[in-house]
Each structure stands twice: as C-alpha cells, then as structure tokens.
C-alpha cells in the first residue's frame, strides 16, 4: 500500500533552507555594511579619500538592504553613520530617528545634531548667514555626534572668516580672535584631531600670525587630515606661509626659519619648501 505522502516532508526542508538563507542574507547585508563602513574609516585615516568615499557608498547600499530586510537599531545606526560620512545630513537624521525608535538611546540626540546641521545649510543657502552661524555654534557647543561637530566646525570657520572679511580694523581683529578662541577650545577638548589644527591654521593665516599658522598646519599634517583635498590645501598653506615669512623676517631669522621648515618638508618627502611631493613635475 502506498502511504499518502506528508506534504510537509517535502516542503519543510525547503522552508528551513529558505529561512536560513534569508536570515543569512539579512545578516550578511549588515555584516557587509559594517565591513565597508570600517574600511571607509581606515581609508579616510590613510588619506585615501576616494576609496573612503567609495567604501561609505557601498556601506550605505548594504545598510539600505539590511534595514529593508531586517530593520534594527544597529542597521539604522549604521545607515545613518554612512549617510553622515557622505554628508547626507537629512537622510542621516531620519536614520538615527529610526534607530532611536528601535531602541538606540543616542539615536534621537544624533538625529537632532544632523537636523541642526541640515538646518544651517538651508539657512546659509537662503542667505540668512547670521541665523546659519547661530545654528552651527549650537551644534559645536552641544553636539554629541562627533562627525556633526567636525563638519559644524568647518562651516563655522568658513562662515565666520567670510563675515570677518567684510569688517575693518578692530571689529575684524575681534571677530577673528573669537574664531581662534573657539577653535582653541575645541583643540583643548580633542588635541589629536588634525582637522581642528588645520582650521586654526587657516584662521591664523587670516590674522597674519604666520608662525602660529605654520605650527598648526605642521601639527595637522602630523596628526592626519580627513581627506586628500584638505591635505593638499594644508600643504599649499604651508607653501604660502613660507613665502610670506621669507619676505617679513630679518636675514638671521629667515635662515633659522628656513632650517626649521626644511627639516619638516624633508620629513614629509617634499622636493623643497615650495614643492609638496604630490605636485606634478
């Protein structure tokens, strides 16, 4: 006699296999996103800007798949981190809020930081410079999310320096001193952040304190900068300071400065103090 076949006998192994496959797929998107995000961070630290950006893009693609197939606080947080790295602030805000909804406690705070950065961009684009500046200062003072604080610091410096350029005499001196003071405070809190030293070097150059500007640019180079573009801009700042200092110093001072800058530029592999290594022949 032929026994009636239990339909589950044939379906069950397939269903189990499918479930395992799907969950492996979900976790693999998350794992891939984590892998690419970490890779992006490593690349960024090694000045490999282009590869870093590409890794963040891949991380974002994988995180998007992960939140669709298996939404979780971690997946949304990772998505938000990748978006923040790519400066997609409004998207990052949404992702952090979603992460908060899934139980990531700091998500709400991070979302607020991203939102305030997004708001400052909109205000700036609408020509409301003062309001934009206030919003940015708020991020610098209160942000818990470090990438938001770094980006806010850059925007703060850019907007403040542009505003100071339109001032004269004492007003300009005071405005620039206030920018330098804010940056020094940031450096006190995070000395190892090369980007803050780069921002201070740029500011000191507006104040025509070239020696200080050089020191900060050299520290920035030693500590590392987030992108190759910033690194090159920092190098050109050093070249500019060199030419300015040569014009201003006495022959003796000039000789001493030449020796100092020569030591640094040799260490960085420059052909001479006017030619960074990446300059074309």
């Amino acid at each position: 006699m032929i026994k009636p076949q239990n339909p589950w006998r044939s379906v069950f192994p397939g269903a189990v296999f499918l479930t395992v496959l799907l969950s492996a797929g979900c976790s693999s998107h998350f794992k891939q996103a984590k892998f690419y995000y970490s890779e992006g961070q490593l690349r960024a630290r090694a000045y490999e800007t282009a590869q870093a950006a590409a890794s963040y893009k891949r991380a974002l693609l994988e995180a998007e798949k992960a939140v669709q197939s298996n939404p979780s606080a971690q997946a949304f947080m990772l998505k938000g981190l990748a978006e923040a790295a790519l400066e997609k602030w409004p998207d990052a805000e949404n992702s952090f809020l979603q992460a908060f909804a899934f139980g990531f406690v700091e998500g709400e705070e991070w979302a607020r930081d991203a939102a305030r950065l997004g708001l400052s961009s909109s205000l700036d684009e609408l020509g409301l410079k003062e309001a934009a500046l206030r919003s940015i200062v708020d991020v610098i003072d209160h942000a818990k999310f470090r990438p938001a604080r770094l980006e806010a610091a850059r925007r703060y410096v850019d907007l403040s320096l542009a505003a100071a350029a339109g001032l004269d005499g004492k007003e300009k001196t005071n405005a620039l001193a206030a920018v330098a003071k804010t940056l020094e405070k940031l450096i006190d809190g995070d000395f190892a952040c090369g980007f803050y030293h780069y921002l201070l070097s740029q500011t000191e150059s507006h104040r025509e304190d070239y020696r200080k500007s050089f020191e900060e640019a050299a520290i920035a180079r030693e500590l590392g900068l987030p992108t190759e573009k910033v690194l090159r801009d920092n190098d050109l700042q050093i070249v500019f300071i060199y030419t300015q200092m040569k014009e201003r110093l006495s022959p003796d001072e000039s000789k001493a400065f030449e020796e100092l800058i020569g030591r640094w530029t040799r260490r960085w592999g420059w052909r001479d103090p006017l030619t960074p290594g990446w300059k074309k022949e």
């Binding site: 350029a165 987030p226 573009k229």
Partner: peptide, 25 residues
C-alpha cells in the same frame, strides 16, 4: 581600484576644505 576612485570624483567638488582664503593667499 579604479571604480572606487572614479565613483568618488564628486568628492573633489564638495566644500570640505576652508573656502574662505585671505586676500594675501
């Protein structure tokens, strides 16, 4: 890793550095 490089080209158009330079610079 050409694909990564080319896909990231637009990064060079982003204002990630300080754009406000002094007149002397």
């Amino acid at each position: 890793d050409l694909k990564e490089r080319v896909l990231a080209w637009q990064v060079w158009l982003e204002p990630e550095m300080v754009e406000s330079k002094p007149d002397a610079f």
